[in-house]
Amino acid sequence: MTGAVGGARPTKPRTWWKTVVVLAVIAGITVWSSIAIGVDVSAIAENAHNAANTLIQLMQPDYSFFPQTLPALLQTVQMAIIATAVSVAIALPVSFWASRATNPNSVALGIVRFIMNVVRSVPDLLYASLFVTVVGTGALSGIFALVLFNLGILVKLVSEALDGLDRGGQEAALASGASWFKANRQAMLPEVAPVYISQAIYVLELNIRASTVIGLVGAGGLGMLIDQVRTFYQYHYLSLIILEILVIVVLLELLSSFARRRLIK
């Protein structure tokens, strides 16, 4: 080893103990979590027959149920569209407020960002169950829940896009005596518009998914129907509803991928 000049390999850095520590921590958390939730493999084995029955029922969607699902389906789409429209309108000024690039006032910036962080960390279903108790069951509470849920996402994505923009135009506008509002309107808004529109489409897609679910707590739409059929274990109806959700989501995904490709071009 001592005499070798060119042939000696560099010694490997000793990092095995780090790996061991990380693995031990992961294993520890896993053991704790499996005890906490009471992992019960035998329950699955015992209920295998049940599961098979459910699956068989799921595989045979009952298409005669389709006319009855139409009102709920329509309501889901309506809720998603209205919530998207409202939140898109609110999110535009708020995201200009929440971006360092467009808001020179750091105190206002901090406040808006903190509020949006809080808004974003509440799950959509929680908003829905709150509004159901405050406003009552129905589509209106669902729309409120979706709007709040959307605002969190939209403001984060759009304000981050604003942060990343080239600020040359804005600087020029400010230098020529424009107010911050005018500078943002003329120089920043056109730059961020494609991102904004594509995020709006993304949010519409999210809303369709979410509005099928928030009905579970009584906020209208397909979720309410899911709740009804699952209490009676009508899995052949349930699978039809799932199929409908799948079709809408896939259609929307196609539409949004097409629209985004156009926007980027």
Partner: peptide, 20 residues
């Protein structure tokens, strides 16, 4: 495409309503 909640609703019949 299927929300977690719907998956959970489907699984209820198999394992019951537990954290597992």
């Amino acid at each position: 495409a299927v929300p977690e909640v719907v998956i959970a609703v489907l699984m209820l019949s198999v394992t019951g309503l537990t954290a597992f």
